[in-house]
Amino acid sequence: MTIAQEQSLLGLAGKVALITGGGAGIGRATAELFAQAGMRVAVAEIDPERAANVRRTLEDAGCDCLVSVADVRDGPQVVALLDDIATRFARLDVLVNNVGDFLGIKGEFVDSHEDQWQALYEINLRHIFHVTRAAIPLMQRSGDGGSIINLSTVEAFRGIPLTVVYSAFNAAITGFTQSLAVELGQYGIRVNAIAPETTNSAQITATPRVPPENRENLKRWFPIGRFGEGSDSAGAALFLASDLLSGWVSGTTVFVDGGALAAGAWMRMPNDDWTHLPIISRDGYTPRSAKE
């Protein structure tokens, strides 16, 4: 099958996508995959070096792209970004709200403070409000519908200690996604979310942290025995971007988690039996001494 035939199957060739935080990790993988699908790609990236790098990659791949150094937490910068997209492409078909981070803030909720809450709010939820509100009129202008994809986390769907506020804002993305899907359906605009488990990215280097002697633990942590990669979530985004593949999918969340949420507390033991009450004497990253 030729590249043109593959692009035809997706129905995305020539369409315009905006990806926030597209300079690294899941965002970068999504930008590159969308370019392969024949899309025109706009990227918002706060880090100038990452922005320059992804611009070179997209241009070298022959992608018609617009890469802007922008902080999507800032309302005026978001408005300027959408104005640039309107001037350059005159339309917007797909929005991927990819930015999010726990900012290294971990600790008991009782010890947290409002400055932390505000910082987590701005990077995990408030920017989605800014970007989506600015993007909707441009999507509506084309009259061809569209797809809004919000990156969340599996931690929005299960309890997690020490990052309570981060989890709360990501849980709010679910309500935002569902309600906006109902509101925008009349315009043919679909709204969905992607919730990844631990994924190797610019923020998290999961696999390298596990010593080779402990890699056996991966098959116990995830039914599909590995951490996620940016390409895993990018593939889900491509599915949700395509009207041909997901044209009647709206208001839902796609879990990209290797089966972890479905497994719940169930884990495989070293003898390959199963338990939902694991006894762990040390985290799976740290090698055990000969005495343990």
Score class of each variant (00 low, 15 high):
T177K: 14
R220M: 09
P208E: 10
I204C: 09
F227A: 02
Q203T: 15
F176D: 03
L245P: 10
E183I: 07
D243L: 10
Y166S: 12
Q203I: 15
Q203K: 14
V256T: 04
T174Y: 08
Q178A: 14
E197Y: 09
P270C: 03
R268Q: 09
S179Y: 07
R220F: 06
L162E: 11
T252P: 02
V164K: 07
T207P: 00
V182K: 15
Q186C: 12
E197P: 06
T205W: 00
P223M: 06
L180W: 10
W274T: 15
T207Y: 07
I189A: 05
G228P: 01
S233F: 07
P270R: 12
I224V: 04
N271Y: 05
A263D: 03
I279P: 04
S233W: 02
A206H: 00
R226E: 00
S179N: 13
I189Y: 02
F176P: 00
E213F: 03
P223E: 04
E183K: 14
G175S: 06
G228F: 00
E183S: 13
S233Q: 10
G230Q: 08
R190H: 10
A172R: 05
I189K: 01
S242M: 05
A171V: 06
T207A: 12
A172H: 02
A195F: 01
I194L: 04
A234R: 07
G264E: 03
A241K: 06
T177H: 13
L261E: 02
P278S: 04
A262R: 09
S201T: 08
L261S: 03
S167F: 05
L162K: 13
A262T: 09
I173E: 01
P196N: 12
H276T: 12
G230F: 01
A241V: 06
N170I: 04
L184W: 01
F255S: 05
R209T: 04
V165S: 06
M269Q: 14
D273G: 15
N192F: 07
F255G: 01
